[in-house]
Design a protein around this nucleic acid. Structure first.
Ligand SMILES: [Zn+2]
Ligand SMILES: [Zn+2]
Ligand SMILES: [Zn+2]
Ligand SMILES: [Zn+2]
Lengths: 125, 125
DNA sequence: ACTTGTGATGTTATCTCATAACACCATTGG
DNA sequence: CCAATGGTGTTATGAGATAACATCACAAGT
């Protein structure tokens, strides 16, 4: 855990919701100075390998992990209204895993993201 | 179904596997002339709305639909080795949908993609 | 101490992916 | 004839990510 890595994780934990890479880059310096892209992308790559951070492909953003061991698979529920995001953990042997097995595929890595409305925004609507 | 839309769909059907947007742009003209990005992106947006094409977020690529009605949800099995991709359709009430319901989320749109090895590449390894 | 290998960082430049904004044209219904 | 609508063509730009190379810190081997 080196300086840049700690800083990026700190920003993500502080946000508590998905953050775009270039927002991390902009907020990187405590004095308002931006970082160079590779600094942040390298930190993200490391943190993702450790399972401390996840990338959310459908919105090109990154979020700090909430629960789950090292290098685990995760799925996300994302509110398109307020941005709230919840990490969930897919059960073993769910229908997608079964479909993969039936098709003869060996799956090593998944991207599972659901978009919609969180409880709060559902009521507000 | 207008000209550009037909052409983009034709390219995707011909490829039979996910294609990057800029590859479509490059192959757009039958005489080797490239298209302008908005031409292809607009066609993709239309085709995706119709459920004829799907975007695969984890690799930023587009693929022609194989089966499924208008505007349906789809999931994908993607071989990282040869690029083969198979569309599957998530069962109602799978564990992810259940998790979403338990969390109070109403999900309208999903991104479900599994990466690994297809049967052929699994043997070849 | 010297050397070598490894992994992290800093920096510049560039590449890929996607959209904003505006002009133009065809179709349709008042 | 005249909006209003939806599609297209074009220019330019915004947003996301990585290549390539120089430098630095540290540990292992001699
Ligand atoms: Zn996690
Ligand atoms: Zn919400
Ligand atoms: Zn489909
Ligand atoms: Zn394969």
């Amino acid at each position: 855990m080196t300086g840049p890595r700690r800083r990026v994780l700190e920003l993500l934990l502080g946000a508590g919701e998905p953050v775009k890479a270039y927002d991390l880059i902009a907020r990187f310096g405590t004095d308002g100075q931006a970082a160079k892209p590779p600094t942040v992308y390298r930190a993200l790559e490391f943190l993702e390998r450790q399972g401390m951070v996840h990338r959310i492909a459908s919105i090109s953003a990154y979020v700090a992990c909430t629960g789950g061991g090292p290098a685990h698979a995760a799925a996300f529920l994302i509110c398109d209204c307020c941005g709230a995001t919840q990490e969930v953990h897919p059960a073993r042997g769910d229908s997608f895993a079964l479909a993969a097995e039936a098709a003869g595929y060996v799956i090593e890595r998944t991207t599972i993201e659901g978009h919609g409305r969180c409880p709060a925004c559902r009521v507000a609507a």
